[in-house]
Structure formats: C-alpha cells, structure tokens
C-alpha cells in the first residue's frame, strides 16, 4: 500500500484571531501553529493503521513554505515514513490541490487521505479537487475505512443517515472523527523524525482561482440577557417577540 496523507498547518484552536493591514491580512504575530486536527488525528493515524495492517509506506505531504517543516516533523514523529513539502504559497484550496495532484500523478498512490477541512479556511475543498484532477473516486466525511485486497469499504455521513460504501482502489478519502483514534508521538518517534527523509519539491504551474479581498472580525456580542430561573416564561416571550425565532 502506498499511502499519501495531506497535512496542513493551522493556528492552534485557542488562538485569538485578529487581522492587520486594513483587515486584508491574518495577523500571524505570536500565533502557535499546529497540524490541522483532523489531518493529524484522523487522516494520518488511519494511514498508519492501514500500513500496520497491510504493509507499505505512509508519505505526508504539505504545500507551503519552509516554516511548515515543524508540523511536517510532527507528522513524522507520529509515524509517517517520509515527507514531501511542495514549495508553493498556500494561496487558495485549488492551488494547493493542484500542486498535490501534480506530485501524486507520477507516484501512483493507492490511497490519498485528507482531513475533512482546515480549521482556518474551512474549505472542504482540497480532497475533491485532487480526486477530479487525478480522475479518482472521492469519498468525503468518512467515519470508517477498511481495505481488503483492492476494495475499500467506508462509512460516510449524509444528512440523517450513515452510509456504507464500497470503492475500488485507488481513491481519495477525507477523514473525520470515528475513522481512527488520535496518537501522541513518543520520544522514539520524535528522535526518529529528525532523520526521516523530507523532500522539498519545487512548485508546479498552478493558479489560484479565488482570493480573499478582506477579512472581518465578528461584531462584538451584546451582553447576555439573563432571565430568572423562576420566570422561564419570560425567555419564551423574548424568543418570540424580540429574537423572533419561534
């Protein structure tokens, strides 16, 4: 099994988000960067589980600049065998996906695993674009994945139900909670990660199709209106007359 896991770099989940330059840029000052949670906990660990069961190799790939190597090393510490960084700016989801697809084209991976979304741009985009560019089947929002020979059996969420589907390899999967249990890197993994191969690949030709013109901070929340627990009728009244949601 040749497995490719796409990992992205995102601000830690507790980061206070602010913007600079007239709200045209995300303020990266003092930001702690982490591996996007669904990539680390679910996509990567599922890749490792498949390798442990079926043999093979897990490569992690990231599109971004040299600063991203800290999170790439983290993925290696958790257990990936080797890594690729494509030296391109992460301008938009299409560009990132096109870079990954271009690299993957010549490598014939059996499975490409991604997280369901990044927690910074919340795109849900990269996996589907890769699948289309490589003409591979794509199953998104997967909660369980098993491979038997050349057939993958997956569970995915749809509105109001969970579906079990079968697909022949190769395929692209976006992973979410349920597919695997997060792993914490141990000392041996961290040591080993330092010497695992990390290949830097130059960017290929791809353009971004969208751009952020401006950011906007959410409007400050009005102070909460408290209702007495002995007068819950007042809450019903407020929801009807003031908030107009019932």
């Amino acid at each position: 099994m040749k497995i490719l896991v796409c990992v992205s770099k995102v601000p830690d989940t507790t980061t206070k988000i602010t913007f600079t330059d007239n709200n045209t840029k995300f303020n990266e000052d003092k930001v702690q960067w982490i591996v996007n949670p669904t990539d680390e906990w679910y996509a990567l660990v599922k890749g490792l589980e498949l390798k442990e069961k079926l043999g093979g190799n897990v490569t992690v790939i990231n599109v971004g600049n040299a600063e991203n190597e800290a999170i790439i090393r983290k993925a290696l510490a958790i257990g990936a065998d080797d890594a690729v960084r494509i030296d391109a700016p992460e301008t938009d989801a299409y560009l990132v996906a096109a870079q990954i697809a271009e690299y993957a084209k010549s490598e014939s991976f059996d499975i490409v695993l991604l997280g369901k979304e990044t927690i910074n741009y919340n795109g849900y985009m990269v996996g589907g674009v890769i699948a289309e560019l490589l003409d591979m089947p794509y199953v998104a929002l997967v909660t369980s994945l098993d491979v038997n020979g050349s057939t993958a059996t997956l569970k995915r969420e749809i509105e109001g139900a969970e579906e079990t589907v079968e697909v022949s390899l190769p395929l692209v999967v976006s992973a979410q909670k349920g597919i695997a249990e997060a792993r914490i890197p141990n000392m041996r993994g961290i040591m080993a990660a330092r010497t695992k191969p990390l290949k830097v690949v130059p960017a290929s030709n791809a353009e971004a199709l969208t751009e952020v013109k401006m950011y906007e901070a959410p409007a400050p929340k009005q102070a909460v209106k408290l209702v007495s627990p002995d007068n819950v009728e007042q809450l019903v009244e407020l929801l009807h007359n003031e908030a107009k949601v019932i």
Partner: peptide
Amino acid sequence: KSVFSGKGFAHYAFK
C-alpha cells in the same frame, strides 16, 4: 464566508 472556525469572516473574490 465564515473562516477560522467562526472567529472571523472573509470576503472572497473570484478570479
């Protein structure tokens, strides 16, 4: 759209 998991919004232009 909402970005940074609800902690901001972004106005996107199409190219």
